[in-house]
Computed example of a mutant assay.
Amino acid sequence: MIYGVGTDLCDIRRIAASLERRGDRFAEKVLGPNEITVFHARRSRVAARGLSYLASRFSAKEAFSKAIGLGMHMPMTWRACEILNAASGKPEIRLHGALAHWFAARRLVAHVTVTDEQDYAASFVVVETTESQREDRS
């Protein structure tokens, strides 16, 4: 059963302006520990790739916060939610701390997709209940 759906469209130029104004502090506020490593690696090869990565993660976290119905309110925080790629390249949501406990207590599972072009990054998140939660309601 679908618990929530979220989508977000992010103007990469706004992210670039924030990064220019605040430097890496902006990326460090938005990205979790695993994401920041990927961001630095991508940016060191091609600056635009790092910027697109940051914007797509920003967008996905916004979409996730909408899908779970919390917005950016505790336990949802920027760094507690990471969007990482599986070995196959598929983006996956990895949660930490209080947000992970909140999510697990509700027996939820999330699916995410991200895309970006020159000026925009977009994401879509579907959060659903697991089979065991559906059975508990019977």
Rank of each mutant, 00 (worst) to 15 (best):
Arg43Trp: 00
Phe39Glu: 04
Glu35Ser: 11
Asp116Phe: 10
Thr129Gln: 06
Val30Tyr: 10
Tyr3Ala: 12
Thr129Pro: 01
Gly97Leu: 12
Ala121Trp: 01
Ser138Ile: 11
Cys10Phe: 00
His40Ile: 02
Pro91His: 09
Arg43Ala: 03
Gly71Asn: 09
Met1Gly: 13
Ala122Ser: 14
Arg45Val: 02
Ser56Phe: 00
Ser88Gly: 02
Gly71Gln: 08
Tyr120Thr: 10
Ala55Leu: 07
Asp116Arg: 11
Gly50Cys: 04
Ser132Val: 12
Phe58Trp: 15
Glu20Ala: 12
Arg22Lys: 05
Ala60Val: 10
Asn34Trp: 04
Leu70His: 15
Ile68Ser: 03
Pro33Tyr: 10
Phe124Gln: 07
Ala105Asn: 11
Asn34Val: 07
Phe26Pro: 09
Leu31Val: 08
Ile83Gly: 03
Leu54Phe: 05
Thr115Ile: 01
Val5Phe: 11
Ser65Thr: 05
Arg45Asn: 09
Leu54Ile: 02
Lys61Gln: 00
Arg45Glu: 05
Arg25Phe: 07
Glu128Thr: 12
Val112Glu: 03
Ser52Tyr: 08
Gly32Ser: 15
Met74Thr: 13
Ala48Glu: 05
Ser44Gln: 05
Val126Glu: 00
Leu70Thr: 15
Leu99Asp: 06
Thr113Trp: 05
Val112His: 04
His40Arg: 15
Ala60Met: 12
Ala55Pro: 02
Val127Gly: 01
Pro33Met: 06
His111Asp: 13
Pro33Val: 11
Met76Pro: 01
Thr130Pro: 01
Arg106His: 05
Glu20Ile: 00
Phe124Ser: 01
Arg25Ile: 00
Glu117Asp: 12
Ala16Pro: 03
Lys61Pro: 02
Trp78Tyr: 10
Phe103Tyr: 15
Gly71Leu: 13
Ser59Gly: 07
Asn34Ala: 13
Ser52Leu: 01
Val125His: 00
Leu99Gly: 14
Glu20Ser: 13
Arg94Asn: 04
Ser52His: 15
Tyr120Ser: 09
Leu84Phe: 05
Leu108Asp: 04
Ser123Gly: 07
Gly50Ser: 04
His73Thr: 13
Gly50Val: 03
Gly23Gln: 02
Lys61Leu: 05
Val125Pro: 03
Ser59Glu: 02
Phe26Gly: 10
Gly97Tyr: 12
Asp8Lys: 09
Phe103Glu: 08
Glu128Ala: 12
Leu19Cys: 08
Asp8Leu: 13
Ser138Cys: 09
Ala105Thr: 06
His101Asn: 05
Thr77Gly: 07
Leu108Met: 03
Ile15Met: 03
Val38Thr: 15
Phe26Arg: 10
Ala17Pro: 03
Arg43Thr: 00
Arg42Asn: 08
Ser59Thr: 00
Ala60Glu: 07
Ser18Ala: 10
Pro91Cys: 08
Asn85His: 13
Met74Asn: 11
Arg49Ala: 11
Thr7Val: 12
His40Lys: 14
Ala17Arg: 09
Ile2His: 04
Ala16Arg: 11
Phe39Arg: 10
Val126Ser: 07
Ala27Glu: 06
Met72Tyr: 15
Val114Gln: 13
Ala80Asp: 01
Ile15Asn: 07
Ser138Asn: 10
Ala86Gly: 08
Asp136Lys: 14
Met76Gln: 04
Leu19Asn: 10
Asp11Val: 02
Tyr3Leu: 07
Ala100Met: 09
Ile12Glu: 10
Ser59Tyr: 01
Ile36Gly: 09
Ala100Ser: 14
Lys29Asp: 00
Ser138Lys: 14
Leu19Phe: 12
Pro75His: 08
Arg13Val: 00
Asp8Trp: 12
Pro75Gly: 07
